[in-house]
Write a protein that binds this DNA or RNA. Structure first.
Length: 507
RNA sequence: GCCGCGUUGGUCAAUCGGUUAAGACGCAUCCCUUUCACGGAUGAAUGAGGGGUUCGAUUCCCCUACGCGGUACCA
C-alpha cells in the first residue's frame, strides 16, 4: 500500500510570485488532489528574505486568487505547525550536529576571505570554479583537517558552519518522476554548507528536515534544483530516513519568449507582459510590477494556460477547468524540456474563457475593472446583459471598459474624423429628423428603432448603410461594438437622442 | 572547464518502430458581418547534424553540435 500523498509548496517570500512558481504550485496541487492527498504550504522565510514585508501575505493572496488554497500552512494551521522555516529554527541545528557526530558532516571555520582565496588559488582554465570537496578540505580550516584541541577552541571562539562531508567517488542515483533514473558522482558535488554561521540552515538542510517532519510524500520543484538533489538524497540517507524519502520530480523551466533562458521579471518588463500572478510592489524601491490579475486575466484562464505549459492530456483538448485538470493530471505526461512563454497564447486562453463564462461569473470581475475606470455599474441585470453582448470581443477583463463603457456613459472621444469627410447637410437633416421622431416611438426595442431608421433614410433618399456608421459613432464614439440598434435599445431613448444631438452640434 | 538535463513548424505540442508527422497560438487569403469582433473555410510552415540497430526510424543506441541548469554561509 502506498503512503498517503502529501505535497508541499515552499516559496521563499523574497519577491513576486512568478509564472514558474505558480506552475510549481499548480502541479503540486493537481497531483495532490488527483490522489486525494494534502497540499501543504511551507514558507521558506530565511534571514535575508524576511525584510520583505507582506511577502507571505502576497503569496497567500496569489494562491487564493488562483484557487489553489493549501490544506495546511501558516494561515490554516495543521498538525505539523509551525509552517514557517523561521519558526522551526531549533530543529535544524540538532540534525546538523547529529550528522557531525556520525561523521557525515564537519565544522568549518574558513572565513569568506579564506574561501575566496582558495577559489582563486585553485582556479585553472580547466576548473574555473574549484569546489570545497574531498580534494581540498584537508587544506582548509575545519574539524577534519585540524587537531581536536584546536577545533574545540575554534568552536568556542569563532564563527563556524557545518558542511556535509561528501563521500569519495560514489554514484548517487535516484528516480525522478519526470526524467527517470538520474545519476551523479559524489565527486562532482561539493561539501555544501548545511548550517550557516548565523545558525540558520541552508535550503538543503531545511528542506530535508521539514519534508521529513511534515511527512511529505512527493517533492516537486524546478529543474534548477536537479543538480543539488544528490545532497538531499544523501541527507535523507545519513539521517536514517531513507524509507521516508519523498519521490522526486524536477519540473521543466518556463523560458523567455525570445532567445533562451529562464523567464525573468525583466523579460516581462522588456516585452510588455506580466510575469507575476498579481501586482507586486517592491518594498525597497516602491516599484510596482503588474500581475496577470490586474492585467485582466481571469484566474481560471491563468491556471489553465499555466497547466498547459509543460503538460497535456494526450488529446487536443486545451481548455480545462480546474476539476478537469485534477481528474486528468498525471506526472508521466509532464514534459522534460522547458517551454517558452507565449503571451499571445496566454491571451487566447483568457479570451476563450471569457467567451464561455457566464455573465454572472464575469460580473464581479467586470464590475471591479469598470470601477477602476470610474464607472459604477449598479444594476446587475443591466450589467449582465451588457456583458453577454460584448464578452465575445473582450480578450482581457480590462477590455470591457473600451468595449462596454458606452453603455454606462456617453463616449468621451468621438471619432468624428471617420464621418466628417462624407458629412453632408442632408445627413445632418436626417439625423435631426430621426432624433425628433424618436419621441413618438412606442416600444423601444431594436427592431422598431431599426425599422424607423430605415424608413426615414429611404424617405430622405440616403442609403441606410451610409448612415449606420455615423449613428454608431454618435452612440459609441468609434467603429466598434455590437449592433447599433441593440446598443440604442440598451441605453434607452433619452440617452440615444441626447448622444445624437451632442455629436450633431460638433460636426 | 566539469557535471546534469534537454532538442518535432516562429511558439505550445501529439506520436509510446510502419501516419499524407495531429491539433492549437500567431500569420496569410477568403466567406459571414451596412462597425469592430465572434464564427466558418483554406493556406504557408516541423523531426539539429552524423553514424548505427531494424524489413522499416521522429520514435531505440552512440557521437557531434547547440541550448539550458548547477558549480555560494541564494534559494
Amino acid at each position: 500500500m502506498s503512503k498517503k500523498v502529501r505535497v508541499r509548496f515552499a516559496p521563499s517570500p523574497t519577491g513576486g510570485l512568478h509564472l514558474g512558481g505558480v506552475r510549481t504550485v499548480l502541479y503540486n496541487y493537481l497531483f495532490a488532489r488527483h490522489h486525494g492527498g494534502d497540499f501543504i504550504l511551507r514558507i521558506e522565510d530565511t534571514d535575508q528574505s524576511r525584510f520583505v514585508e507582506d511577502a507571505e501575505k502576497y503569496i497567500l493572496d496569489c494562491l487564493n486568487w488562483c484557487g489553489l488554497t493549501p490544506d495546511e500552512g501558516p494561515e490554516q494551521g495543521g498538525p505539523f505547525r509551525p509552517y514557517r522555516q523561521s519558526e522551526r529554527k531549533a530543529n535544524y541545528r540538532k540534525y546538523a550536529e547529529q550528522l557531525v557526530e556520525q561523521g557525515h558532516a564537519y565544522y568549518a571555520f574558513d572565513t569568506p576571505a579564506e574561501l575566496e582565496e582558495m577559489r582563486t588559488a585553485f582556479k585553472t582554465p580547466e576548473n574555473p570554479s574549484p569546489q570545497y570537496n574531498a580534494a581540498i578540505r584537508d587544506r582548509m580550516s575545519n574539524s577534519i583537517s585540524l587537531p581536536p584541541d584546536k577545533v574545540e577552541l575554534l568552536l568556542k571562539e569563532s564563527n563556524y558552519v557545518i558542511r556535509i562531508k561528501m563521500p569519495d567517488n560514489e554514484e548517487i542515483s535516484f528516480t525522478d518522476m519526470i526524467r527517470g533514473e538520474v545519476t551523479f558522482n559524489s565527486n562532482q558535488v561539493d561539501d555544501k554548507v548545511l548550517l550557516k554561521g548565523d545558525g540558520m540552515p541552508t535550503y538543503h538542510l531545511a528542506v530535508v528536515v521539514d519534508d521529513y517532519a511534515m511527512e511529505i510524500s512527493h517533492a516537486f520543484r524546478g529543474e534548477e534544483w536537479l543538480s543539488s538533489a544528490p545532497v538531499h538524497i544523501l541527507l535523507w540517507k545519513y539521517l536514517g530516513w531513507e524509507e521516508k524519502m519523498p519521490e522526486w520530480a524536477h519540473l521543466p523551466l518556463i523560458l523567455k519568449p525570445d532567445g533562451n533562458g529562464k523567464l525573468s521579471k525583466r523579460d516581462g518588463d522588456r516585452l510588455g507582459f506580466p510575469v507575476f500572478a498579481m501586482d507586486w510592489k517592491d518594498p525597497k524601491t516602491g516599484e510596482i510590477t503588474t500581475g496577470f490579475k490586474e492585467r485582466g486575466f481571469v484566474p481560471e484562464a491563468f491556471v489553465n494556460m499555466l497547466a498547459m505549459l509543460g503538460w497535456n492530456d494526450g488529446t487536443s483538448k486545451e481548455i480545462f477547468t480546474i476539476e478537469e485538470l485534477i481528474k486528468q493530471f498525471t506526472m508521466d505526461r509532464v514534459h522534460k524540456s522547458g517551454a517558452k512563454f507565449d503571451f499571445e497564447k496566454a491571451k487566447w486562453f483568457n479570451h476563450e474563457w471569457i467567451k464561455h463564462m457566464e455573465a454572472a461569473r464575469l460580473r464581479p470581475l467586470v464590475k471591479e475593472s469598470l470601477m477602476l475606470q470610474g464607472i459604477i455599474a449598479l444594476n446587475d441585470e443591466y450589467l449582465d446583459q451588457v456583458i453577454t453582448m460584448v464578452k465575445d470581443r473582450c480578450i482581457l477583463i480590462t477590455d470591457f471598459y473600451t468595449q462596454a463603457g458606452f453603455f454606462f456613459q456617453a463616449p468621451k472621444d468621438i471619432d468624428t474624423a471617420s464621418i466628417k469627410p462624407k458629412w453632408t447637410d442632408e445627413k445632418a437633416n436626417f439625423f435631426n429628423a430621426f432624433s425628433e421622431s424618436l419621441a413618438a416611438e412606442g416600444e423601444w426595442i431594436a427592431i422598431n428603432i431599426e425599422q424607423r431608421f430605415k424608413e426615414l433614410s429611404t424617405a430622405a433618399g440616403i442609403k441606410p448603410g451610409e448612415l449606420m456608421l455615423p449613428l454608431r459613432i454618435m452612440l459609441v464614439g468609434g467603429k466598434f461594438g455590437p449592433g447599433v440598434f441593440d446598443i440604442a435599445a440598451m441605453i434607452g431613448k433619452e440617452e440615444t437622442t441626447e448622444r445624437m444631438k451632442a455629436v450633431l452640434t460638433i460636426l
